[in-house]
Protein backbone atom coordinates (compact mmCIF):
# COMPACT_ATOMS: atom_id res chain seq x y z
CA UNK A 1 0.00 0.00 0.00
CA UNK A 2 1.33 3.41 -1.05
CA UNK A 3 1.31 6.49 1.17
CA UNK A 4 1.15 9.79 -0.69
CA UNK A 5 1.79 13.39 0.36
CA UNK A 6 -1.96 13.89 0.51
CA UNK A 7 -2.52 10.89 2.79
CA UNK A 8 0.28 11.91 5.18
CA UNK A 9 -1.16 15.44 5.39
CA UNK A 10 -4.60 14.00 6.09
CA UNK A 11 -3.30 11.52 8.66
CA UNK A 12 -1.31 14.14 10.58
CA UNK A 13 -4.10 16.71 10.71
CA UNK A 14 -6.64 14.08 11.74
CA UNK A 15 -4.50 12.39 14.39
CA UNK A 16 -3.02 15.57 15.88
CA UNK A 17 -5.90 18.04 15.76
CA UNK A 18 -8.64 15.39 15.86
CA UNK A 19 -6.88 13.64 18.74
CA UNK A 20 -6.63 16.83 20.79
CA UNK A 21 -10.27 17.72 20.09
CA UNK A 22 -11.38 14.25 21.13
CA UNK A 23 -9.32 14.41 24.32
CA UNK A 24 -10.73 17.86 25.09
CA UNK A 25 -14.30 16.66 24.61
CA UNK A 26 -13.70 13.71 26.90
CA UNK A 27 -12.10 15.96 29.54
CA UNK A 28 -8.72 14.26 29.35
CA UNK A 29 -6.82 17.15 27.77
CA UNK A 30 -5.18 18.95 30.69
CA UNK A 31 -2.60 21.64 30.00
CA UNK A 32 -2.22 22.83 33.56
CA UNK A 33 -1.03 21.16 36.72
CA UNK A 34 -3.45 18.93 38.59
CA UNK A 35 -1.78 20.26 41.76
CA UNK A 36 -1.11 16.82 43.17
CA UNK A 37 2.35 16.49 44.70
CA UNK A 38 4.23 13.21 44.68
CA UNK A 39 3.73 10.88 47.60
CA UNK A 40 6.41 9.17 49.64
CA UNK A 41 6.47 5.59 48.37
CA UNK A 42 8.52 4.03 51.14
CA UNK A 43 9.50 4.54 54.76
CA UNK A 44 7.76 6.10 57.72
CA UNK A 45 5.84 8.61 55.62
CA UNK A 46 4.77 6.24 52.81
CA UNK A 47 1.49 7.37 51.29
CA UNK A 48 1.82 10.98 52.51
CA UNK A 49 2.29 13.83 50.05
CA UNK A 50 5.82 15.18 49.90
CA UNK A 51 6.04 18.90 50.82
CA UNK A 52 9.19 19.17 48.70
CA UNK A 53 6.94 18.92 45.63
CA UNK A 54 4.85 22.00 46.44
CA UNK A 55 5.10 24.37 43.44
CA UNK A 56 4.88 28.14 43.17
CA UNK A 57 1.49 27.82 41.45
CA UNK A 58 -0.11 25.97 44.39
CA UNK A 59 -2.75 27.95 46.23
CA UNK A 60 -3.04 27.61 50.00
CA UNK A 61 -6.27 25.69 49.27
CA UNK A 62 -4.24 23.24 47.13
CA UNK A 63 -1.82 22.77 50.01
CA UNK A 64 -4.72 22.23 52.41
CA UNK A 65 -6.15 19.59 50.04
CA UNK A 66 -2.90 17.62 49.98
CA UNK A 67 -1.47 18.15 53.46
CA UNK A 68 -2.94 18.35 56.94
CA UNK A 69 -2.42 22.09 57.17
CA UNK A 70 -5.35 24.46 56.74
CA UNK A 71 -5.14 27.46 54.42
CA UNK A 72 -5.98 29.64 57.41
CA UNK A 73 -2.93 28.27 59.28
CA UNK A 74 -0.72 29.05 56.28
CA UNK A 75 -2.10 32.57 55.98
CA UNK A 76 -1.44 33.14 59.69
CA UNK A 77 2.06 31.68 59.47
CA UNK A 78 2.97 34.04 56.64
CA UNK A 79 1.00 36.96 58.11
CA UNK A 80 -1.34 37.29 55.15
CA UNK A 81 -4.46 39.37 55.57
CA UNK A 82 -7.55 37.17 55.32
CA UNK A 83 -10.10 39.92 55.92
CA UNK A 84 -9.94 41.21 52.34
CA UNK A 85 -8.99 37.98 50.59
CA UNK A 86 -9.82 34.37 51.56
CA UNK A 87 -6.81 32.39 52.85
CA UNK A 88 -7.25 29.61 50.29
CA UNK A 89 -6.81 31.95 47.32
CA UNK A 90 -3.25 33.00 48.16
CA UNK A 91 -0.66 31.15 46.07
CA UNK A 92 2.84 30.10 47.05
CA UNK A 93 4.34 32.67 44.65
CA UNK A 94 2.63 35.47 46.61
CA UNK A 95 4.99 34.84 49.51
CA UNK A 96 7.99 36.10 47.60
CA UNK A 97 6.05 39.16 46.49
CA UNK A 98 5.07 40.00 50.06
CA UNK A 99 8.49 39.48 51.61
CA UNK A 100 10.78 40.53 48.77
CA UNK A 101 11.49 43.99 50.19
CA UNK A 102 11.86 42.83 53.79
CA UNK A 103 14.32 40.03 53.42
CA UNK A 104 17.96 40.86 54.17
CA UNK A 105 20.62 40.41 51.47
CA UNK A 106 21.36 36.72 50.86
CA UNK A 107 18.08 35.48 52.31
CA UNK A 108 14.84 34.42 50.68
CA UNK A 109 11.26 33.91 51.74
CA UNK A 110 9.27 32.16 49.05
CA UNK A 111 7.93 28.81 47.93
CA UNK A 112 10.77 26.99 49.69
CA UNK A 113 9.71 28.65 52.96
CA UNK A 114 6.23 27.23 52.42
CA UNK A 115 7.65 23.75 51.79
CA UNK A 116 9.73 24.08 54.93
CA UNK A 117 6.84 25.32 57.05
CA UNK A 118 4.55 22.49 55.89
CA UNK A 119 7.30 19.94 56.64
CA UNK A 120 7.86 21.31 60.13
CA UNK A 121 4.12 21.43 60.73
CA UNK A 122 3.70 17.80 59.69
CA UNK A 123 6.92 16.58 61.27
CA UNK A 124 8.37 15.50 57.93
CA UNK A 125 12.13 15.98 57.47
CA UNK A 126 12.97 18.57 54.81
CA UNK A 127 16.27 20.14 53.81
CA UNK A 128 15.48 23.79 53.03
CA UNK A 129 17.78 25.78 50.74
CA UNK A 130 20.64 27.48 52.61
CA UNK A 131 19.23 30.98 52.14
CA UNK A 132 15.61 30.16 52.92
CA UNK A 133 14.07 32.03 55.85
CA UNK A 134 10.81 31.68 57.75
CA UNK A 135 8.73 34.55 59.11
CA UNK A 136 8.82 34.85 62.91
CA UNK A 137 5.01 34.52 62.78
CA UNK A 138 5.48 31.02 61.33
CA UNK A 139 7.87 30.05 64.13
CA UNK A 140 5.46 31.43 66.75
CA UNK A 141 2.62 29.42 65.25
CA UNK A 142 4.67 26.21 65.13
CA UNK A 143 5.67 26.69 68.75
CA UNK A 144 2.14 27.60 69.88
CA UNK A 145 0.71 24.48 68.26
CA UNK A 146 3.41 22.27 69.74
CA UNK A 147 5.00 21.41 66.39
CA UNK A 148 8.45 22.56 67.54
CA UNK A 149 9.90 22.90 71.02
CA UNK A 150 11.60 25.92 72.55
CA UNK A 151 15.07 24.70 71.61
CA UNK A 152 14.11 24.28 67.96
CA UNK A 153 12.49 27.68 67.97
CA UNK A 154 15.66 29.18 69.36
CA UNK A 155 17.72 27.46 66.70
CA UNK A 156 15.44 28.56 63.88
CA UNK A 157 15.38 32.16 65.08
CA UNK A 158 18.64 32.80 63.22
CA UNK A 159 16.83 31.90 60.00
CA UNK A 160 13.78 34.03 60.50
CA UNK A 161 12.56 37.39 59.30
CA UNK A 162 9.94 39.80 60.64
CA UNK A 163 6.69 39.59 58.66
CA UNK A 164 5.26 42.66 56.91
CA UNK A 165 3.73 45.22 59.26
CA UNK A 166 -0.01 45.72 59.65
CA UNK A 167 -0.24 48.17 56.77
CA UNK A 168 1.47 45.84 54.31
CA UNK A 169 -0.13 42.57 55.21
CA UNK A 170 -1.47 41.83 51.74
CA UNK A 171 1.16 40.74 49.24
CA UNK A 172 1.35 42.65 45.99
CA UNK A 173 -0.42 40.52 43.42
CA UNK A 174 -0.68 42.13 40.05
CA UNK A 175 -4.06 40.69 39.12
CA UNK A 176 -5.56 41.74 42.41
CA UNK A 177 -4.02 45.18 42.67
CA UNK A 178 -5.97 47.40 45.05
CA UNK A 179 -5.75 51.16 44.57
CA UNK A 180 -4.53 52.99 47.64
CA UNK A 181 -4.12 56.64 48.60
CA UNK A 182 -0.39 56.31 47.88
CA UNK A 183 -0.93 55.09 44.32
CA UNK A 184 1.17 56.67 41.64
CA UNK A 185 4.12 57.56 43.84
CA UNK A 186 7.23 55.41 43.47
CA UNK A 187 8.87 54.71 46.82
CA UNK A 188 11.31 52.24 48.29
CA UNK A 189 8.57 49.65 48.76
CA UNK A 190 7.16 49.94 45.22
CA UNK A 191 7.28 46.84 43.04
CA UNK A 192 7.31 46.59 39.25
CA UNK A 193 3.76 45.25 39.48
CA UNK A 194 2.70 48.57 41.04
CA UNK A 195 4.24 50.57 38.23
CA UNK A 196 2.60 48.33 35.62
CA UNK A 197 -0.73 48.75 37.40
CA UNK A 198 -0.20 52.52 37.19
CA UNK A 199 -0.14 52.32 33.41
CA UNK A 200 3.50 51.79 32.45
CA UNK A 201 4.13 48.81 30.16
CA UNK A 202 6.64 46.08 30.98
CA UNK A 203 8.49 46.98 27.78
CA UNK A 204 8.85 50.62 28.86
CA UNK A 205 10.26 49.54 32.22
CA UNK A 206 12.68 47.12 30.58
CA UNK A 207 13.87 49.87 28.24
CA UNK A 208 14.62 52.11 31.19
CA UNK A 209 16.38 49.51 33.32
CA UNK A 210 18.03 47.89 30.30
CA UNK A 211 17.24 44.29 31.26
CA UNK A 212 14.25 41.94 31.46
CA UNK A 213 12.07 42.11 34.57
CA UNK A 214 13.09 39.46 37.09
CA UNK A 215 9.47 39.01 38.21
CA UNK A 216 6.73 41.56 38.35
CA UNK A 217 6.37 41.42 42.12
CA UNK A 218 10.05 42.20 42.71
CA UNK A 219 10.81 45.31 44.71
CA UNK A 220 12.27 47.91 42.35
CA UNK A 221 14.84 49.45 44.70
CA UNK A 222 16.24 46.08 45.79
CA UNK A 223 16.45 44.83 42.25
CA UNK A 224 18.26 47.95 41.03
CA UNK A 225 20.68 47.91 43.95
CA UNK A 226 21.47 44.26 43.30
CA UNK A 227 22.30 45.15 39.71
CA UNK A 228 24.35 48.24 40.52
CA UNK A 229 21.82 50.72 39.10
CA UNK A 230 20.81 54.01 40.65
CA UNK A 231 17.34 53.87 42.18
CA UNK A 232 16.88 57.64 42.13
CA UNK A 233 17.67 57.93 38.40
CA UNK A 234 15.39 55.07 37.38
CA UNK A 235 12.74 56.23 39.83
CA UNK A 236 12.65 59.68 38.20
CA UNK A 237 12.27 58.17 34.72
CA UNK A 238 9.57 55.74 35.79
CA UNK A 239 7.77 58.42 37.79
CA UNK A 240 7.53 60.66 34.75
CA UNK A 241 5.93 57.79 32.78
CA UNK A 242 3.52 57.08 35.66
CA UNK A 243 2.60 60.77 35.82
CA UNK A 244 1.97 60.92 32.07
CA UNK A 245 -0.19 57.81 32.05
CA UNK A 246 -2.14 59.06 35.06
CA UNK A 247 -3.11 62.34 33.38
Amino acid sequence: MRVTVRSIAFMLVVTMIGGVLLLSLSGLWKTTSSKTPVKFSTGEFAGLSNPADIRGSYSFADVEKNFSVTAETLANAFSFDTSSKPAGTYVAKDIEGAYGALVPEGGEVGTDSLKWFVSLYMGIPYEAEGDTLLPTSALDLLFREGKIDAAAREELASRSVEPPGEGMKSPVVITEHVESAEDGVIKGSTTYADVIAWGVSQQQIEEIIGMPLPGKTTNIRDHLQKNGLSFSTVKAQLQSLVDVSGQ
Binding site: G19, V20, L23, L28, W29, K30, T31, T32, S33, S34, T36, P37, V38, K39, D53, R55
Partner: peptide, 13 residues
Protein backbone atom coordinates in the same frame (compact mmCIF):
# COMPACT_ATOMS: atom_id res chain seq x y z
CA UNK B 1 3.16 8.89 39.55
CA UNK B 2 3.85 12.61 39.10
CA UNK B 3 4.89 14.96 36.35
CA UNK B 4 8.12 16.91 36.02
CA UNK B 5 7.63 20.62 36.76
CA UNK B 6 5.62 22.44 34.07
CA UNK B 7 4.73 19.21 32.23
CA UNK B 8 1.12 18.10 32.26
CA UNK B 9 -1.11 15.29 30.99
CA UNK B 10 -1.44 16.94 27.57
CA UNK B 11 2.26 16.37 26.77
CA UNK B 12 1.94 12.66 27.49
CA UNK B 13 -1.16 12.36 25.33
Amino acid sequence: GAYVQKIHESAVW
